[in-house]
């Protein structure tokens, strides 16, 4: 039995199918990333797994429990950071930990937990006065109070500066090293890539791709290609004089040639040289998770009617900040 098993999970709000029949499993000790634009259904999914929302259909098992029916006993075994975590304003991280331990009716060493999340310096600062990163660390600390083997982190680094994000990453890595199973949602591709063993990309309540980032890239992305900066004339010349498939991006003035064999690159460059035309930078490239993500979720209209277009990620992060 896997720690998390989800089959054909569904959740509707009124007419909106927020989660529309998704299935996945999470393996023990794995960091599983749920990636997707705003409104994809990440939080809904994760809240169902935490036992905070009732599902409308499908099967869910978390640590062998039905999270909705056995919610209270499940809560003793998992750790949770809700999206946009906040705590009581006039409470310090240390007090918050002690309070949480009371709720779980257990004894903990608050200072050890504070050290684990790199927060010992702000132990006594009131929550109100903490920085964004320190607030998220407080959330991490609270999620660790009951020493859970499984953690749900809903956008743990959204809105943090790069240093604060890296600090959170460090904590998450150390938790993974301790063998904890972690379900993480994020808008940030680099975060998913850096931290997750496996990723599921969600869009409009569906999982549109799942696997390790390499698997996703090879399944949904193009393979290696040669890119040459040059004029369209050059692209036409190469096309005419080789067997190669040649694409031209007029906006960027980039000639792009898929490489079925490495040796194709040589043929392309030889033709370019022969042409006598000028050409600039050359490089070989393959699709990054970025490219794949944008292909998978782009060109669609999101719930506000905005087009999630080529620059999807920056648009997303802009929307979040509003």
């Amino acid at each position: 039995m896997k720690p998390i098993e989800v089959k054909n999970l569904q959740k509707t709000y009124g007419d909106l199918k927020a989660v529309d029949g998704i299935s996945f499993v999470v393996n023990e000790g794995e960091v599983f990333g749920l990636l997707g634009p705003n409104g994809a259904g990440k939080t809904t999914t994760i809240e169902i797994l935490e036992g905070l929302r009732e599902r409308d259909g499908g099967e869910v098992k978390v640590l062998g429990c039905d999270p909705w029916k056995d919610g209270y006993s499940l809560h003793k075994k998992i750790g949770v950071i809700p999206q946009e975590f906040t705590f009581f304003e006039k409470t310090s991280p240390r007090e918050a930990i002690v309070y949480y331990a009371d709720l779980f009716n257990i004894k903990v060493d608050p200072d050890q937990i504070l050290r684990d999340v790199l927060l010992e310096d702000s132990a006594k600062t009131l929550f109100d006065n903490l920085s964004g990163g320190q607030k998220q660390k407080t959330g991490l600390a609270l999620s660790l109070v009951n020493s859970p083997d499984m953690l749900f982190l809903d956008e743990p680094t959204t809105g943090l500066d790069p240093n604060a994000r890296r600090a959170i990453w460090e904590v998450i890595r150390s938790l993974k090293a301790k063998g904890k199973t972690i379900i993480l949602t994020t808008h940030y591709l680099d975060e998913a890539e850096q931290l997750s063993d496996r990723v599921a990309i969600m869009n409009h309540g569906h999982i549109v791709a799942m696997g390790t980032t390499d698997e996703i890239i090879s399944q949904h992305g193009s393979g290696e290609r040669l890119e040459i900066n040059g004029e369209e004339k050059l692209a036409e010349y190469i096309k005419a004089n080789t067997e190669l498939q040649v694409n031209y991006d007029t906006a960027k003035c980039v000639i792009s040639i898929p490489l079925n064999k490495k040796i194709d690159a040589l043929a392309a460059l030889a033709a370019a040289e022969q042409s006598g035309l000028d050409w600039g930078e050359i490089q070989t490239r393959r699709d990054s998770l970025d490219d794949v993500f944008i292909n998978l979720v782009s060109g669609e209209v999101d719930e506000q009617g905005e087009i999630v277009s080529e620059d999807a990620e920056s648009q997303l992060s802009r929307k979040r900040r509003r």
Binding site: E50, G51, L52, Y72, H75, K76, I78, V80, P82, E84, F85, T86, F87, F88, E89, Y100, L103, F104, N105, G139, L142, F152
Partner: peptide, 14 residues
Amino acid sequence: ERKTIEALLATPLT
């Protein structure tokens, strides 16, 4: 409004 109540939902509190 302050969303502090959410932090208590995933505890054993009913």
